[in-house]
Design a protein around this nucleic acid. Structure first.
Length: 202
DNA sequence: ATGACGATGCACT
DNA sequence: GTGCATCGTCATG
């Protein structure tokens, strides 16, 4: 996975991250839900320009943007885009590695509730402010792209009040680990692997 | 099953 | 002071 893979529109990156395996300190799983945010999008933290909080969004692509949500939770994005100020929010994982540690951190044993939300997965993986700005493909993080194209679900984003109609939320079809179901499940053609990271398609 | 609500930090009119 | 890119708990159908 190279910098060029992240130098794309956040919608494209959000789609291609579905099915990738993300870990922090060897703990994590398969990304099953993402949302795209763009600086021209009123719902994006970057919409009003750079601030102390969103500085990572205006830095190099392929880095983490971590922010505190509702004063309680952390949320993890991956900075991307052709121009500045775009990112993909990681909303849910299918737990795969370090499940015992994640359960202990979360205080739950139900795998379906372990990483099924942006705040939950950060608690499970131990993502905090200290990871803001860190490269997502270097230790302690690891990001392995999908080897096979996967079937995608598309829908409107969750928990926002602006630009609510943009269909910029993506999910892995059939996953039991989504934060919420997709209202009118609409599938996208499975063409979502990173070009540089898998066997070339015919 | 779905809906209300509080916790709690911080960026920003 | 207001508004969140949330989550758990409690209340009801």
């Amino acid at each position: 996975m190279t910098t060029a893979d992240f130098a794309r529109h956040p919608v494209e990156v959000a789609q291609r991250l579905i099915g990738a395996r993300l870990t922090l300190g060897g703990v994590g799983g398969v990304i099953v839900e993402t949302e795209a945010y763009h600086h021209e999008d009123p719902a994006s933290h970057s919409h009003a320009g750079p601030t102390a909080r969103n500085a990572a969004m205006f830095g190099p692509v392929g880095r983490a943007y971590v922010y505190r949500s509702y004063g309680v939770h952390w949320c993890l994005n991956i900075v991307c885009g052709i121009d500045l100020g775009s990112a993909v929010l990681i909303r849910a994982l299918e737990p795969v590695e370090g499940i015992e540690l994640m359960c202990a951190r979360r205080g739950v044993s139900d795998l379906r509730r372990l990483c099924s939300g942006p705040g939950k997965l950060c608690q499970a993986l131990g993502v905090t402010q200290e990871h803001d700005g860190m490269p997502i493909e270097h230790a302690p993080f690891q990001l392995r792209p999908t080897e096979r194209p996967v079937e995608l679900l598309v829908g409107p984003r969750i928990g926002i009040s602006k630009a609510v109609d943009l269909p910029w939320r993506f999910g892995l079809a059939g996953s039991k680990h989504l934060s919420r179901p997709f209202p009118r499940p609409h599938r996208l053609q499975p063409a979502n692997t990173f070009p540089t990271s898998s066997t070339p398609q015919p």
